[in-house]
Amino acid sequence: MVGIGFRKDFAVNLLQSPSFNPAFIEVAPENWIGVGGYWKKLFNQALEKYPLYTHGLSLSVGSPDELDLDFLQKVKCFLQENNVQLYSEHLSYSKCDNAHLYDLLPIPFTADAVHHVSRRIRQVQDFLERKIAIEIVSYYTPVAPELTEIAFINAVLEEAGCDLLLDVNNVYVNAFNHHYNAKAFIDQLPMDKVAYIHMAGHEQVADDLIIDTHGEAIIDPVYDLFTYTIQRLNRDVPVLLERDFNIPELDELQHEMDRLQAIKTANLKKTAYVIA
């Protein structure tokens, strides 16, 4: 199944369109906790139609600061109240020295950071009484790295005992920005831990830099990487189309979702045939 990020920019159209059919929607709990009125009504209408997946922004599992347990309690209530299918967060930090930054900063790839982040992810999972999926973020510079990116990610996944949210576009972006082979990177990921996939567009802002904007259509090389990922994965997991800015007509988003579903269907069928 293929879902869509539920954005306020197109919430009304999404609910009214007879031809736009995501299998599920995804929101950031931060954007909906404690919200009432107009948006809450739309949100409730959406929940009547679609299962809900969530992707947090502010938990900051990579932060040196203590976890915000008050906030985590609110997240827990939100997940319970809205029958959330899956909660994911980013392998990054967005808070430091008691100040929120509202964007995702790269964690230094170090062994001590692996232990620190893993302990916090376990703490979150214990608190929420559910497994969470952690997303590999796109990054534009490493910070004091001692490990490779893949070694860092795999160590966290192993030590934290969490699932992986595989953002295929982020792998593409990182491979371009940091000069490695995206497919070889995916080959090294523990595919049995992949619980969820994100797909999105990006913007190349310099000869040597791509920014993960979620503001453009998915490009063909990322579709190709997605195909490769599905073949490697060899099983069906939910896939989300992220589009946060520069929102096109819903028909275009539907077309992207259809293409993602077609890739899944074709490649999973092919695999089943080969196995048989």
Binding site: C96, A99, P142
Partner: peptide, 23 residues
């Protein structure tokens, strides 16, 4: 590690960059 993370966060808040290894 904390110091490097804090330095990047501080740069994002203030715009004043102090060298961070590997960046």
């Amino acid at each position: 590690t904390y110091r490097h993370q804090a330095a990047l966060a501080d740069y994002c808040r203030t715009g004043q960059y102090n060298a961070i290894p590997g960046v």
